[in-house]
């Protein structure tokens, strides 16, 4: 158990299925905000919110510009924008150039979240076909936060979790099925 204040999750190819499983297994009493950056390629984020909302234990909404980060909610980065967290724990969006060919970029979200929550942050990297998230997860650990990586052998596409392991290492490297109970254990008092 740690003093977790927030959870950030990054995924790409194969991420939809992985997120369904992850969010479905969470304890609905989790008080932390859960911020998700998933490269979807879809035009809007609303559809993804709806799909995930059907199976998630926590309500799933799009992260809203300038609005406060909400505890007990899953908040998704909108398509076409980088999602950042301000020091006063409000969301900011930017249209800065793509990072790792992606906007939203996992690295950008993780870096700003690590700046804000430091050792009280949990970073999770799941399946994906790019190296996005690796540098972000390194910063999460550098700030004293906790890193969870899906075992590459278990991931639909192992590239992203492997890149994260290579660059950042992990406090936990476990199959997807084990991540929800792990988060529940780390996050509930």
């Amino acid at each position: 158990m740690m003093n977790a204040a927030a959870i950030v999750v990054g995924c790409s190819t194969g991420g939809l299925d992985a997120l369904k499983l992850l969010l479905g297994g969470l304890d609905r009493r989790l008080p932390q905000p859960l911020l998700v950056c998933c490269h979807t390629g879809s035009e809007t984020i609303e559809l993804l919110c709806e799909l995930l909302g059907r199976v998630s234990a926590l309500p799933v909404i799009a992260a809203a510009e300038r609005h406060a980060v909400r505890g007990g909610h899953v908040q998704l980065a909108p398509t076409g924008y980088h999602l950042l967290v301000e020091p006063d724990r409000r969301f900011a969006l930017t249209t800065d150039p793509r990072v790792n060919h992606s906007r939203p970029s996992i690295d950008v979200l993780f870096a700003s979240a690590a700046t804000v929550w430091r050792e009280a942050l949990i970073g999770v990297v799941l399946t994906g076909a790019s190296a996005d998230g690796a540098e972000g997860l390194r910063l999460v650990r550098r700030a004293g936060g906790c890193a969870i990586v899906q075992s590459p052998a278990d991931a639909q596409i192992p590239v992203m979790p492997q890149a994260a392991l290579d660059r950042a290492g992990a406090d936990y490297c476990v199959p997807l099925n084990d991540i929800p109970p792990l988060l529940n254990r780390l996050c509930l008092p």
Binding site: V85, E86, D96, S112, T115
Partner: peptide, 9 residues
């Protein structure tokens, strides 16, 4: 300017 993105830039 909003601090998070300014710091990044």
């Amino acid at each position: 300017y909003a601090p998070a993105s300014l710091r990044r830039r």
